[in-house]
């Protein structure tokens, strides 16, 4: 790499910053060309792949990919479909044909199902779903055709930057502290009391119920602690994975839950998580 190229990458730029006036480069995402120079159109880090220059934004909306595990919130019930807020540029769509109807996977949908769509998902409900495909206009089509997907209960949601949640093999984690987290790739994270898979399968008829289980005070404290750990990791711009949450949780134990978001404690915890992640790598 020549000296000019090293000037280009590993720089933080704001919209309108001149990245290079060398016309040997091509412009990629997050840039625009004017007067044969390349400028940044977003605030973020400059990246270069051979001759292609792009800027990775610090803050962005979720751009979906097929197979992603997401957490979404129903915003609208319309004919044969739900609109779902997935933190993307436009709402995703969950078709009535892409959910499991109560009474078994094999059941076919009937007209009465169309009339009682709100008894499955109503406005405001949170769903755990997978991206099935794209529509022509770029909207995401979701599906919940698996027993582990569906309505979320027994917990609380935290919204984080989507770019901090990496894609991985599993997104439903049971943490050692006894709490379940669903790391939606779209930046919506669900933290809830652990309910065993066997119990979920046994209660298949209640899969669309709004009824929470009994949650003890200790479980509430633990959920709040995990939620605050995720909030502070997000604020300090640390990748949010099962490992980083566990590190943050372990380091946070000496502090009271409500103190975790105090600036100095949050900084200290984030630094310790970063150090532990580096050590592991």
């Amino acid at each position: 790499m020549d000296a000019g190229a090293s000037n280009i990458i590993s720089r933080i730029v704001t919209p309108g910053t001149l990245i290079t006036s060398d016309n040997a480069y091509m412009r990629g995402h997050g840039t625009f060309a004017e007067h044969e120079s390349i400028y940044s159109s977003v605030a973020g880090a400059v990246e270069r792949v051979n001759k292609l220059i792009s800027v990775r934004p610090l803050k962005q909306r979720y751009g979906g990919e097929i197979g992603d595990i997401v957490v979404g919130r129903i915003t609208e019930v319309s004919s044969k479909r739900w609109r779902v807020d997935v933190n993307a540029r436009q709402d995703g769509v969950l078709l009535l044909s892409s959910i499991i109807l109560p009474g078994g996977i094999q059941r076919r949908k009937s007209e009465s199902d169309e009339l009682q769509m709100r008894s499955f998902f109503a406005e405001g409900d949170l769903v755990y779903a997978e991206v099935q495909s794209y529509f022509a206009d770029g909207a995401l089509s979701l599906h919940t055709r698996s027993v582990q997907y569906g309505k979320l209960r027994n917990g609380t949601m935290v919204a984080v930057f989507p770019q901090l949640v990496p894609r991985s093999r599993t997104h439903l984690h049971r943490l050692p502290c006894g709490v379940d987290v669903v790391l939606g790739v779209n930046g919506y994270i669900w933290i809830s009391k652990h309910v065993s898979a066997a119990k979920v399968e046994a209660n298949a008829e209640h899969m669309y119920s709004d009824q929470n289980e009994l949650i003890s005070d200790e479980e509430r404290e633990t959920i709040a602690r995990v939620a605050n750990c995720i909030r502070l990791l997000n604020r300090m711009y640390v990748k949010i994975t099962e490992t980083s949450i566990n590190f943050a949780y372990e380091s946070s134990l000496p502090h009271a839950v409500k103190d975790l978001l105090k600036t100095d404690i949050a900084q200290e915890l984030a630094d310790s998580v970063k150090a532990q992640l580096l050590q592991q790598a």
Binding site: R73, T75, N154, Q211
Partner: peptide
């Protein structure tokens, strides 16, 4: 928006 489960 808040779901009934969250509200509870």
């Amino acid at each position: 928006l808040v779901s009934p489960a969250e509200q509870d």
